[in-house]
Design a binder for these strands. Structure first.
Lengths: 360, 360
DNA sequence: CGGGATAATTGAAACCTTTCAAGGCTGATA
DNA sequence: TATCAGCCTTGAAAGGTTTCAATTATCCCG
């Protein structure tokens, strides 16, 4: 691989001049500049980013840490961030924490030694990002938090209006005539889960509906959690007629559970999710959901970060994006009047089905 | 951030000794070693990876290039690769090419200057990776190709047995009694698409079924492509009774099209996809699919790469993973006998629906 | 044409490691 | 106790860039 020294020789100039041409860091007379560019071309020279980073104390990499690349919502965020970063010639180093606290820590520590220009983080469960981020801040490296915030987070953030989204969804169910509303929340130490629950509660309060505490189930943000907690909910008496799921993965699990118990969505149970993932369009029934644009979350976060990199010293920004309710076939009015509650089918799973049962 | 010099001072040894302790590159007597480790601890020292990489001419990063992070199949591969890489303390730099040739090129070029230890690539459409990879090989950097191969690829590769998988799926449809089988393939310059088509054809040939050339439609590996080509297929006369889709995203699009034309899957049209994505479980009807483990593709690729990094000089490896057929509700025998072909419903899309129509 | 001011160019230091060669120490053997 | 081998330890160079200070070239004005 060619280096600057060789380019300098080819162009019959000093190394310093080559650098100046490449970075526009000082005036260089046209004929020299041309010679340098020429040499760069013919040698297909590309500056060694490690050396450059070492010297500059900063690279053109942006670290991005996400909890689970397997949940389709996060790739959407990544995509957004990548698009903005790439077109500003920053590159993304993507780290997957697998929702594992220690893995997040490891990434956070390591990343630091690559001197990234900034960090975009979707905190994992139990993240103590706040402490870690301090190290980065002290080194002048921006950190933007996306989707959910760790405890005591005071830095830049981009989130959706979770509270309002949940509120809207709940109001919609209420308007359809439901009175026995349940919700399956994500882990309540995550701000987004908490906010969605409080939106749900606000809507209930507003119409003076009583909320049976058993109707609020907390679980992880995945299909399995949704599946298990839905089984729990649907065995309660009286059985809830509508479920607001903390996200679409939970809703997907709910759908499976509803089906398995011989019930029908939306006839017996209405269901609304959160995120409005693409895959909600093709489910049976198609899934209603609170739509938030993961892509936008990503682009906005990257933009804020780029501003910081370019020297924006203004106080922390907290961007909250609007949500909208996307109604499809998974909602309907509750089963008519006081009709006798339909009995549940005996549970009968196919062999080899994948869902693992929790021990607790 | 602390550096080696400070550690050396704290431990009252030379910089060289610190390095030796950290890398086990020479015997260091126990009491000095302890002093160094102590200092490292208290200063929370972490070696600067840029400097290290610069000196060693190689970093602990593995570049991974994928065509579209938004297609759930690829994150699964990433996940696999990441798990293996991470546990061997390599880190993944993920680059998304958006199926864009020039973006792939840009990433390939850039990545080079970060001196990654190796590369895992799922080539994009029209990739001329083969040429690019040469540069890496000359620098002693391994490149492993996953899922599909670019033209003239002679390096390491990990792929699924696309031909056999497609064959099995087709045989299954035939066994159910279908005779008018159609297929929607991915871009045929991609090896995986080509292999799947040839598996399909082999099955047809074996049972001496005639293949109407119009029954083979080529498109991109996404929902929109599947949607459009299914519309085309279902307007042909006689109408095919079964479709083998080149992947699950295409199958998802097909499902939408079938539904939109007022037809029923599986009663009017049977459908089998490829990849066996999670989301196939919750579609209406649930989607049958040729199952290939993206996760395994990823782990295997990473393993091969790690071997190369550790000095494995054996000839290029071509790992081909088995597939299995996962049957769900999207397949059934063809509509009974010579029943009059059901008329198509007039097309009538909801406003604001997202699918964009191609101009051609 | 000389002088000064300004612009262009250069050389070398610095960034933080790794690694090599050289020097120092330890302990054993004679 | 002197010598030697062998192991430890060290200092310095090298890796490729940026950047600062210093030098050189250019230009304009008198």
């Amino acid at each position: 691989m060619a280096n600057m020294k060789q380019i300098a020789q080819m162009a019959r100039v000093s190394i310093g001049t080559v650098s100046h041409v490449l970075n526009n860091s000082a005036g260089v007379r046209e004929h020299l500049r041309r010679r340098v560019l020429q040499a760069v071309q013919t040698a297909r020279y590309q500056p060694n980013q490690l050396a450059r980073g070492l010297r500059r104390d900063k690279t053109d990499m942006i670290g991005m840490i996400i909890p689970d690349i397997t949940n389709p919502f996060f790739p959407a965020v990544v995509r957004g961030a990548e698009d903005v970063a790439f077109s500003n010639s920053y590159r993304l180093i993507l780290c997957n924490t697998d929702n594992d606290h220690s893995k997040e820590l490891a990434h956070l520590n390591e990343l630091h030694t690559y001197l990234p220009a900034g960090l975009i983080v979707i905190p994992s469960n139990f993240s103590d990002l706040t402490v870690q981020a301090e190290r980065y801040r002290r080194a002048g490296t921006g950190v933007v938090c996306v989707d959910r915030l760790p405890k005591n987070w005071s830095g830049d953030s981009v989130t959706a209006d979770n509270e309002q989204g949940a509120y809207d969804a709940t109001r919609c169910l209420v308007k359809l005539g439901h009175t026995r509303l349940a919700t399956i929340t994500g882990p309540l130490h995550l701000t987004n889960a908490k906010e969605r629950l409080s939106g749900f509660k606000r809507a209930m309060r507003e119409v003076k509906l009583l909320l049976n505490p058993e109707y609020v189930q907390e679980t992880t943000f995945d299909k399995r959690g949704g599946y298990l907690k839905t089984l729990t909910l649907l065995r309660l008496l009286p059985r809830p007629t509508a479920i607001f799921a903390g996200n679409d993965m939970i809703a997907l699990g709910a759908l499976l559970a509803i089906r398995e118990l011989g019930l029908n969505c939306p006839k017996d149970v209405s269901l609304i999710g959160f995120d409005d993932l693409d895959l909600g369009e093709t489910t049976d029934p198609s899934l209603s959901s609170v739509s938030q644009s993961g892509y936008q979350l990503g682009t906005r976060a990257a933009s804020i970060l780029l501003d910081r990199i370019q020297g924006d010293k203004s106080p922390a920004k907290h961007l909250v994006l609007e949500t909208s309710l996307d109604l499809r076939n998974s909602v309907a009015p509750p089963p008519s009047g006081n009709r006798v509650t339909k009995p549940l089918k005996r549970r009968n799973r196919r062999d080899g089905q994948e869902i693992v049962h929790a021990t607790s």
